[in-house]
Design a protein around this nucleic acid. Sequence first.
DNA 1: GTTCAGACCATCCGAAACAGACGGTCTGCT
DNA 2: AGCAGACCGTCTGTTTCGGATGGTCTGAAC
Lengths: 209, 209
Amino acid sequence: MDEKEAPDATDRPSSVPGAASLTPVSYLVLGLVARHGTATPYDLKSFAAQSVGNFWSFPHAQLYKEPPRLAEAGLLAEEREEFGRRRRIFRITDAGRAALAEWLASGETALGELRAPGLLKLAFAELGRPADAVTLARGQAAAHRAQLASYEAFAALPADAMPWSLRRALELGLGYERLQVDFWEALVGDLAAGRIPPSPSAGPAPPGS
Amino acid sequence: MDEKEAPDATDRPSSVPGAASLTPVSYLVLGLVARHGTATPYDLKSFAAQSVGNFWSFPHAQLYKEPPRLAEAGLLAEEREEFGRRRRIFRITDAGRAALAEWLASGETALGELRAPGLLKLAFAELGRPADAVTLARGQAAAHRAQLASYEAFAALPADAMPWSLRRALELGLGYERLQVDFWEALVGDLAAGRIPPSPSAGPAPPGS
DNA sequence: GTTCAGACCATCCGAAACAGACGGTCTGCT
DNA sequence: AGCAGACCGTCTGTTTCGGATGGTCTGAAC
């Protein structure tokens, strides 16, 4: 029953020639270049860190490898600085803009998972001591409070510091962190008050059952 | 307190159990085996799908590869069915229990990222047409509503169908999906009402900046 | 009592992603 | 000029991903 018979609407950009497979990184690069006009790989690294990098980090090596790949597919144009470091400068092409537009227009909507390490640990907390669960909850609450503060600082930037769409995305991030903080703090409270029965009936199912 | 292990020439199976590199998958396997007493790899696949698999899916190949690895490290004991398929049956050892306990007790708290594909797309929605953003938001809302319903069905199981810790984890999942649904629905509303300025003042920064 | 379909179970492999070490290049300060 | 330190880019081993592939068993039809 674990099979998902997803219709899988083959979301590959059909109108774009030679575009084999575009990953999230591809669209990140495409989007960043489109937004800024031009960018070197290093710029991409910085741009990403300042924007989506907050909730989705990419190894910087990816941001160096992806632009040439996209250039080869015709989605980016590449030029070089004349002097100095002779860095690669990328600019989006019409084909690139089309691929980006198609991605934005497609009703693809994969939905991702809640892969929080703390959540995995919590799921098995019954196997440890109750005190460990408290430690975990406190730690998670603190970590998420810190992350929340960082988002809030970012959100405090003036209105024209980021496009409306990014700001809106940031708001989901804010909500997410608040949810996490509330959740873990409530858990700390419940555990401290003994409101959660760590040994309610008989503990975990005995192996011999 | 994550250990930085220097790459030894030949890393022996285990000198100190639990100190080697154990990944989230390792702990998933350890936890599942501990919870159920015994398990074949195929069982693990099923158990995972029924529990944490809801918010954190693992390729099943991982669940076949990991148990032998853990057995080699002394954290699991392996026996075989006598007849029939002669499947591998795993059972946790004292060392395995110790490693699991150590993990549960450690104040590790890595915090993971909000890697939702929809969020990435939203972050660049300013580059597309406003109608695309509406499509995206509607699609995301629907997808998350479906996921929410699935969680709710799971949560409706009787109290003894799952340990308290897993139920608690599920509650975070529930909250997360509700947050998503609310967020995307609110976005649909704002976009429809024109409350979000897709072309506020002057558009994105010109390339020549 | 064979045969065969279809579920159940397990392994393998190429292609990415990942983390981060390592090296080169330039700028500002002395 | 010399040098420190920031800036910038590439490379490599390891792990993960996702799915193709291929065996094994049950039971129902013949």
